[in-house]
Design a protein around this nucleic acid. Structure first.
Lengths: 164, 164
DNA sequence: TATTGTTATACTCTATAACTATA
DNA sequence: TATAGTTATAGAGTATAACAATA
């Protein structure tokens, strides 16, 4: 990589301006300002920074939280169903369930109806932690209620749901 | 990891139901259905699947595309400004600019106004590629125009912008 | 002292492919 | 043959910390 000054001899490769412009003080986003992907990505970063990441010390991220809530609402759920609900591969679910099982928050029980599957069940401790995490998640997202009216929040959720 | 059947002896740890439930046929999302983070994440995945990822063969991802568009709109821009605009660390910008420079799409030119900085400028080839990529990005997001009315799309963009 | 760019390093999240056991 | 779960592996995308040059 030639990261030299190369102040001459490359003029023919320049598209816009050779002169040593002062760096712009305010940045023009161009096409990005109307890009859905750009805004969705920034929104996700903003949500992560608000505390949704590393939600309760432990190594419990959004995926673990999602799996826990799903198993709470749907006792006996199978791993491939977690994968579908969270939009990730079934192979990626294994490590998530492993972690929750190691924490003692969740049990795998081989299904008798279909012995290829596990049924997933929360333990009592898992149910307790789910409650704690749910509260934390709600607090992490509570700033949205300051930014948006209830109507606007519903609008946003509805519009996003149509994208997925 | 004991992934045995453990059909007995763990009843005290179960929070919900011991019986071997058939896996639920339809999944209840619980709290997730009203979670902003959950919907934003699914929306991002949907956008990526629509072709925004690996946008033009080469190793040109969303970050490279963003940097290219920014430099096109703001000739002489510095790397730390790219970092701020894309919401990533300045250290992460280095590799992105390296790649664009290797492709011959972009030039670093040490600024004379502040010799700590580089001014970033598109090459003629970079400007050509920016046009190609812009078209591809617009096509990748065009499905949004099928899903949303122009008003709805503006609403969504506006609401997302308020989150970031 | 603070800022800009750089390097080295490591971490999170996820996908892919190949395997097993069951269906 | 197809499906559910597993393993091993690899990749993308980023952050952090420490550093040199410059302000």
């Amino acid at each position: 990589m030639s990261r030299t000054e190369s102040s001459t001899g490359t003029a023919d490769r320049m598209s816009v301006s050779l002169p040593d412009l002062p760096a712009p003080t305010s940045v023009n986003l161009g096409l990005l300002s109307s890009s859905l992907a750009f805004h969705v990505r920034k929104a996700q970063l903003a949500l992560q920074r608000r505390g949704l990441r590393n939600i309760s010390a432990m190594h419990v991220g959004p995926a673990e939280f999602g799996a826990l809530v799903l198993c709470e609402q749907n006792p006996g759920m199978a791993q491939f169903q977690i994968a579908a609900a969270l939009d990730i591969d079934k192979a990626s679910v294994v490590a998530i369930i492993d972690r929750l099982e190691e924490l003692g928050w969740l049990l795998r029980r081989r299904s008798n109806h279909d012995r290829r599957r596990y049924g997933l069940y929360l333990t009592a401790e898992g149910a307790r932690q789910a409650q704690v995490l749910r509260t934390q998640a709600e607090e992490a997202e509570s700033f949205a209620h300051d930014i948006f009216s209830p109507d606007e929040l519903n609008q946003l959720l509805g519009l996003l749901a149509r994208l997925g």
